[in-house]
Design a protein around this nucleic acid. Sequence first.
DNA 1: CTGTTAGCGCCTTCAG
DNA 2: CTGAAGGCGCTAACAG
Lengths: 329, 329
Amino acid sequence: MSSIRDVARRAGVAISTVSKALNGYPNVSEETRVKVNEAVKELNFTPNPIASALSSKKAGRVALLIRLNTKTQAVDEINMQYLSGAINRAVERRLDVVTVFFSMIRGWNAGEIEDYFRSQGVEGIIIYGMGKQDEVLHGLIERQRFKIVAVDAPAENASTSCVQIDHEQAQYEVARRTVLENGGRSILYLAGKPDGYVTQERLSGMQRLAREEKISLLVRAGDFSEKKARELTFRYARAYDAIVCASDLMAIGAMRALQEMDIFRPVCGFDGITLMGYAGMQMNTVKQDFYRISRRAMDEMGRLLEGGTGRKLILDHKIVRMQYQDVIC
Amino acid sequence: MSSIRDVARRAGVAISTVSKALNGYPNVSEETRVKVNEAVKELNFTPNPIASALSSKKAGRVALLIRLNTKTQAVDEINMQYLSGAINRAVERRLDVVTVFFSMIRGWNAGEIEDYFRSQGVEGIIIYGMGKQDEVLHGLIERQRFKIVAVDAPAENASTSCVQIDHEQAQYEVARRTVLENGGRSILYLAGKPDGYVTQERLSGMQRLAREEKISLLVRAGDFSEKKARELTFRYARAYDAIVCASDLMAIGAMRALQEMDIFRPVCGFDGITLMGYAGMQMNTVKQDFYRISRRAMDEMGRLLEGGTGRKLILDHKIVRMQYQDVIC
DNA sequence: CTGTTAGCGCCTTCAG
DNA sequence: CTGAAGGCGCTAACAG
């Protein structure tokens, strides 16, 4: 394990010169740059990122803040896509990543979180699925002490970007297609958690469609819960022509309830998880592609860390029909 | 952002004393230890791991090496359990974690992997599901330059531990219960990938049962693939009384095939994933509890990093009956 | 353009 | 039992 010192000696220059040459500073002559590079090759030198981080106070470290729901398996799929997308892109961009679960920082205030992250060398945070009531996180964003990318939450300032699909439009489209394919003048809409930003956006899309098509609409809070969707379906489905759900998981719950009630109603979901295929169902849904979203989020983080300013990114989505054949392998 | 210096001042002692107190050195009086701890609390001090790593030349960093199968959703569930178990325990033990996917290091030789990890300050690696043919990883283990914990692979030496359940016994038990409940003198056994260590262990358990109960046994390689299990079931199930699968995913494939063939055969799986419940199935399976296994693996890693010597750990398992009611929420 | 000089925050002898 | 001093490997002003 050779150090920068060895390289300096080998190249016959000062340590600082080596540092500058290696970090692409402009004020180094081509000649010495070459000498340094040769020495690096000969000694098989790799800069020690720990020392570098300590000295520059820049660890280039990004925390992935993920909400884990141990009970619902569907969330695993989404979170795993988030993780792998972000981590893969991070490797490509030479960024260091730590995974942090919401449960770890529960009960902390913004200052404590800040201290913790800072002490861990974290400079940027990608927050997945922040809710309206996550006040501590909003505080973190407002303070602007970290570069932040919020996925599926509309936070935006100089050091905060957000990235998501157009939930309003997506919900509109998938509901529209479902209604067009099956007919129907009344819809039971199972919305998400009131706390979630996407909940409102998706609901708006549904309402727009109802307005345009003059469809009567009953909205109920399904809270993204399969169980609740199941109950609501038992209670209301009979009186409506179709059921539109703000998540695949709720769609599964609704579909199962319909099966038990032994009646048919078209159902559509939202997310595009393979779990739906496993549940043996076939229905329209919105394919979000969480892997790609997360890659894009890490990309945006890289831009922020390099000094870019916050902005809002809207990615595209697809309306697809999921079924078991699509997921088996 | 308080540093050790602030703590020292606040507690009225020297920096080095704080360091000793915090790192559990013996030669610090109880009195000063208390003072230091108070100061730490008051200042909300967290030691800077970067500085600590640089100084002590110990980063306490652990890499989680995970094999991601983007196609099969069941694997997401297992991997997520692995990740959260390990990460949660790592936080408690103040270990730093990096997540690395097999795909990242594909094609690298042991030396390259070693350099990469070393340059990242990695001292320990937890390998999940190493196969017999992962020669590079075996090389890594033999060199003993890292502390390694292998999950579900029988690697063991001075700096390598392994942790897993008793697959042989578990397979024996779950198959036994299934046969006892349903009767049957012949079994179709769908085994895992030939490359996997657990494949052989589970098969042995099945063979032991067959021997003891004088059951006729047909073994086929299902490769942990749902699709393959499906095909094999179509081909052989009719001639056998029961189907024992070396994984839940294969059990799902088998069950679906049986449904399509419109015949009944008792099926049992292995793993205890909730996906099985979603697939609308009810069957015996082995509950491994990957979360707990992974926690235990991280624990063992902590022990190795503290100078412990490698060993083999066998955790217990449960035989359970999975169904949809168990997973809905 | 290059070298000198201070640290970054912490750990670790080694005196007191 | 405690404190002072000297780094760990690198970066970042300053001088030259």
